[in-house]
Write a protein that binds this DNA or RNA. Structure first.
Lengths: 248, 248
DNA sequence: TCCGGCGCTAATGTATACAGTCTGAATTCA
DNA sequence: TGAATTCAGACTGTATACATTAGCGCCGGA
């Protein structure tokens, strides 16, 4: 073993999990397609035991589905599933925002959030948003949402949001980048950024109801945009990617 | 192998998972206590491989926590964690109720819910509620909440509710039964049952906002009762049990 | 030609052997 | 006497061998 000397620090299980997740979200395996252990062994380069562990974790994560007769397949999501997931996440994040506002946060805690906001501002200011900028936006947006969840100071809620976010919003694939060329993209991003700003303001002023409402609205906007996007391009393959951009 | 001929139908992994979960929620292992694989092997009677799978699943489920240096320990929950979990579940169930109301359900779909309601009615009618009746109530209440989640027709949401419900509400242990003797128990059950009735009515009449609001209120009542109960008896060991009764 | 049964192959589920590492204690030196 | 270092034990992480089962194709009969 130890064929690859680099990055031997992390466990084989984690490496397998990352590799398989990447394979799934990048579209290397079609939804509904079976994923055999030996196949996974070849892909990841580790033994069957860590591969199995990774598969179990990915199942719990929601990316895989157990086949009754044994083994796993890539989980397939309907359009409705993804729309629901967006609203679900919005609801959870609304609760997180409410908790943050109710519990009260110091301005010191809000600092990272505001930094994030400013960085995003710098990105969306560009007129046609470059693919690189859009890529950065995706990362920053994820960071903002993660920070917001943390602000709730509720481990159970943070955990749940993590679970809810993991799935249909996973892939920063090529499809996503392609979306950045759309003329509406910048508009969506500007509105989403406005939502971000409002929620920070609401939390700062302890307006819990407003904080919760805006995050729900944020999700509703995302869902609406996804629905619109689906009118134009009906490739189901694009769903995860579209969900990502729509989730703003 | 096959030392126990009975129940060879289910896989070793599932058996191990059930046995270990029972061990944890029944209090056989204290929160924070480490659970070694060999120990688990002795308890479950299966080999290390299925035991490991079960441990990973239980970690993803939230009952266990990974120790950085390796292995797992029983997860410890603070009072705040449990209160948050109750509110979290209420929020998710509120969304489920809203989905059900928005999407519209046939009276045929509501039939099982109403049956459940009637059965609970029969139980709470008794003046001092017997331990057996209370035990039945716990089961029926869980059934009601599961049915409600199903009514949302949203697999992602159902899954999430399942996850949120699993944890601090797990153990139907002896402690729970002891609670049934409390004089306030019946009052709590009656109010909770009223909530149940209202949500079914709201869904039937497509009042989505009302359906959502009542489930949130339901959770808030539960949280308040738990807080009150904690004033009297401050044993942290009782938390899961108290959460269960308070979750009504 | 079609249907059914039988056998094979391959993949999963399980068990166990092996290696690396962390913990804890005991011993030794300052 | 205290602290540090080393050694031993155990436990996890990993790899692989074994068994069982499900799926699938082929062959034979109607």
């Amino acid at each position: 073993m130890a064929e690859r000397e680099a990055e031997r620090s992390v466990s084989q299980t984690v490496r397998a999990q990352l590799a398989l997740r990447e394979l799934i979200v990048s579209g290397g395996l079609r939804p509904g397609e079976r994923i055999s252990e030996l196949q996974a062994v070849e892909v990841t380069g580790v033994s069957r035991t860590p591969v199995r562990m990774a598969l179990v974790r990915l199942e719990e994560e929601g990316l895989l589905e157990a086949i009754p007769s044994g083994g796993f397949m890539v989980k397939a999501f309907s359009e409705r599933d993804i729309l629901d997931s967006i609203e679900l996440r919005g609801t959870l994040e609304g609760l997180a925002a409410r908790f943050a506002a109710e519990r009260g946060v110091s301005s010191r805690d809000l600092e990272p959030l505001k930094e994030c906001l400013n960085e995003i501002d710098g990105l969306v200011r560009q007129e046609p948003i470059s693919m690189e900028a859009f890529s950065s936006y995706v990362a920053l947006n994820a960071r903002f949402h993660a920070l917001l969840a943390e602000l709730s100071r509720s481990p159970p809620l943070i955990r749940q949001i993590d679970r809810a976010s993991a799935l249909p919003f996973a892939s920063p694939s090529g499809f996503v980048m392609a979306q950045s060329a759309l003329p509406e993209a910048r508009q969506i991003l500007l509105i989403a950024q406005d939502h971000h700003r409002v929620v920070v303001d609401a939390i700062e002023n302890r307006e819990s109801a407003r904080a919760e409402a805006i995050m729900r609205e944020h999700a509703r906007l995302a869902a609406r945009n996804l629905r619109l996007a689906l009118r134009n391009r009906t490739h189901l393959d694009l769903l995860p990617a579209l969900a990502l951009i729509s989730a703003g």
